[in-house]
Amino acid sequence: MKHPHGRFEALAGAILLDEATAADRAEFALHAESCAVCREDAAAFTTPLRGSVEAVAQSETWRPSMTDEILERIHERHTKRTRFTITTIGYAVVASIVLNVAFVSGFGGRAIDALRITPRIAYSATQPIRIEHRPKVALVVNGVSALVGPRRAALAAVARKNIRPASQAAASDDIGPPDVFDGLRADESGARNVAAGYPPVCAADLERVAVRPEPCRSMPAERR
């Protein structure tokens, strides 16, 4: 909500600033007859505000000068910017030269090749662990495949020794690798618990175990 007296304050301000028209002055004078506050304001009209402030300003002798400081500040900023730009360009040039030399001399290529080498995972800092890819072997015992735990390992060991066809055994010792099942022994305590859940195996069962080699899907098929 607007202050009801605001209009006359604005008129008084206009008169003080010497911006009021004759109509404005007449309107204010009419109001001031019945308003003590505005009558007091009207008393100040005799010495216009603008004139008195200007008179004081004329008497001021402070002549602040900052041209040199400002120009110096601007130049300082220029210098800083130029230095920054030159430094950045310099770093970029040096980096491109280093990269060029590295690739021309072959160092860069060797460095990239080095990144491609199969990692040797050191065991206990001295024992390298060799990670090899072997074909999978599927077990079928009495028509039931995928036995788990030590029982499976035992079955496989017997199968490798006795049941594998002679032709395959002669062709390659790599088929049916012994360490395929080694991992299963890693958690021996767990394995024992699992094994305890199976009934004991009799020799007759073992005799019926057959091993059927199955090519690994991720390895190329053997050429004949």
Partner: peptide, 30 residues
């Protein structure tokens, strides 16, 4: 309005206000 020599309308533009508000403030300031 007094020292810099702007009219109330110009001062209003500088201050982002209205000419009437500037005049009112001048009156109250006085």
């Amino acid at each position: 309005t007094t020292y810099a020599g702007y009219s109330s309308a110009e001062a209003a533009l500088i201050l982002g206000s209205s000419s009437e508000a500037v005049r009112q403030r001048v009156c109250r300031a006085t």
